[in-house]
């Protein structure tokens, strides 16, 4: 029985100029119109803290903030971010000082293998910006799109709540 795989002939995508504020700094790049934000961040901006864990929009490992809102960057087109502020895990620590969320994840063992951690922390950061004092139920709802396979989530929830408690 002959088997033929479908031919993958993709039309060459047009490039366009993308101007965005990435981790606090404006920058411009020529990006293909079909380039995903996650690929732009990892391959163009070299921000490999942004992870890919699934085949699209399932695991949350690629979560970044777009204008303070947590979004999976693997189902977002880079070109749609023109003029917007993008933040990744690399942008959180200032002058080598981790944020309280990062410290809490470290000290409370909110990270084991650490692969889901950048996305998890960015989702938590998004939550704390709109709701600085969440309940446990708020945390569970806000982070339910971010999967972790190591922790059973117990210490992740503790980390977020501890970070919220120590909020100024």
């Amino acid at each position: 029985m002959p088997i033929e795989s479908p031919q993958l002939e993709r039309p060459q995508s047009q490039k366009r100029l993308l101007r965005l504020k990435l981790n606090g700094r404006w920058r411009e790049d020529a990006v293909a119109e079909n380039q995903l934000l996650v690929d732009y961040l990892r391959d163009v901006a070299a921000l490999t803290g942004v992870k890919t864990g699934c085949d699209g929009g399932e695991c949350g490992a690629c979560t970044v903030l777009i204008d303070d809102e947590a979004v999976p960057s693997c189902i977002t087109l880079a070109a749609r971010c023109d003029g917007r502020a993008i933040e990744t895990i690399e942008g959180l620590a200032r002058q080598g000082r981790p944020t309280r969320l990062q410290r809490a994840f470290h000290e409370k063992l909110g990270a084991q293998c650490g692969f889901c951690t950048p996305g998890m922390i960015m989702a938590a950061e998004g939550l704390l910006r709109r709701n600085p004092h969440p309940t446990e139920a708020d945390v569970r709802t806000a982070l339910s799109g971010n999967l972790c396979r190591c922790t059973g989530y117990v210490k992740i929830i503790e980390s977020v709540l501890v970070a919220a408690e120590t909020a100024p």
Binding site: V50, L92, Q112
Partner: peptide, 19 residues
């Protein structure tokens, strides 16, 4: 104690194979 490589994980410095 926290993991000795924990800071790298929470700051995005940790490099996994694809990184």
């Amino acid at each position: 104690v926290p993991l000795i490589d924990g800071i790298d994980k929470v700051t995005g410095r940790a490099r996994y194979t694809a990184d």
